[in-house]
């Protein structure tokens, strides 16, 4: 085994894994607070990619403004979804909310087809992001270096928000018990809204990074990342933010290594992710970092 070749595969795996990690953070945070698997997370990602696309191409905005706009609009969309599809179901059995989430997901996909059209669109990528750097025979794009950085920064920011701020304390209280939190003077509706806004903003950043890494967008683009990142979140311990990052990285590296070293199984790459999901649920339902049940966010 050539060492440079191995490190190239590893670099590819980290690059893919950091994208999974980035998207899984938002997934796991929303679950941690609300015990709700937000199946529309992947579709919010798609929406944000389209907002960036239209912002830059149709309205000719500078790329940084499009990015800011995409994060804000996707966050607003997430808040709207929570109001319309989840809040009315807050006192219903959990399964109803789950089904509502699946409905929202289908709704966004089909809305995407109607509004944006079924044909794929190419995303413009600033040249400095696509530049390739060669380190000892290993080719890495600047974007592949940027994404893990963004992931880690967001991870730190989110940890700070949840564990070091008053709002974070309120979020953790809500995640334990709505009624008791309300008795303590916490505005539960506001906190849940805030959770969705944060989660959706994270999905937006994930969507933008995804669209830059794989510069082709269509209305179904969020489906697979959504499912894969759900697996990553469960693998790492759903509700646990560092766990989601770890799960994302391991899933990405695992997938790349599977395709690289057992090429005959390349067609089962998605199956690999779901086998991990099943095994995790069977043998370690709390995930890799999930033992701190009480600390769950």
């Amino acid at each position: 085994m050539d060492l440079a070749l191995f490190f190239q595969h590893l670099a590819n795996g980290i690059s893919l894994g950091s994208l999974y990690a980035l998207i899984a953070i938002g997934y796991t945070m929303v679950y941690g607070i609300l015990r709700l698997i937000n199946f529309a997370h992947g579709d919010l990602l798609m929406m944000s990619a389209y907002i960036v696309f239209y912002g830059m191409l149709v309205f000719a905005l500078p790329w940084w403004l499009s990015v800011v706009l995409a994060v804000l609009l996707t966050a607003a969309l997430g808040m709207g979804i929570e109001r319309a599809a989840y809040r009315p179901l807050r006192d219903s059995p959990r399964i109803s909310v789950l089904i509502s989430a699946i409905g929202v997901s289908f709704f966004l996909q089909n809305l995407g087809i109607v509004v944006f059209g079924g044909r794929a669109k190419a995303v413009y990528r600033p040249a400095w992001l696509a530049a390739t750097i060669d380190i000892g025979g290993v080719s890495i794009t600047t974007l592949a270096l940027l994404i893990p950085g963004v992931t880690l920064i967001l991870l730190l920011m989110l940890s700070h928000l949840v564990y070091r701020t008053k709002t974070g304390m309120a979020m953790r209280a809500v995640s334990r018990d709505y009624d008791t939190a309300r008795l303590m003077g916490i505005d539960v509706d506001r906190i849940i809204s805030f959770t969705f806004v944060t989660g959706s903003a994270l999905a937006a950043v994930g969507g933008i990074m995804w669209a830059l890494r794989y510069p082709q967008i269509h209305p179904m683009i969020g489906v697979m990342p959504g499912l894969k990142c759900f697996v990553a979140a469960v693998f790492g311990g759903i509700g646990n933010i560092p766990g989601a990052v770890l799960g994302g990285f391991l899933l990405g590296i695992g997938e790349i290594m599977l395709v690289a070293f057992i090429p005959n199984l390349a067609g089962y790459r998605d199956a690999f992710a779901f086998v991990i999901l099943i095994l995790t649920l069977l043998f370690r339902p709390t995930g890799l970092l999930g033992e701190k049940m009480a600390e769950k966010v």
């Binding site: 050539d2 070749l5 190239q8 595969h9 590819n12 690059s15 893919l16 794989y214 082709q216 489906v223 697979m224 997938e255 790349i256 290594m257 599977l258 395709v259 690289a260 090429p263 005959n264 390349a266 067609g267 089962y268 790459r269 998605d270």
Partner: peptide, 22 residues
């Protein structure tokens, strides 16, 4: 030299391409 597979919906081909490069 080799026949490499990918699956419908895949967007990341870096693993196969690294093999090609090699």
């Amino acid at each position: 030299l080799s026949v490499l597979d990918y699956q419908k919906g895949d967007q990341d081909f870096t693993a196969q391409l690294t093999t090609v490069k090699n």
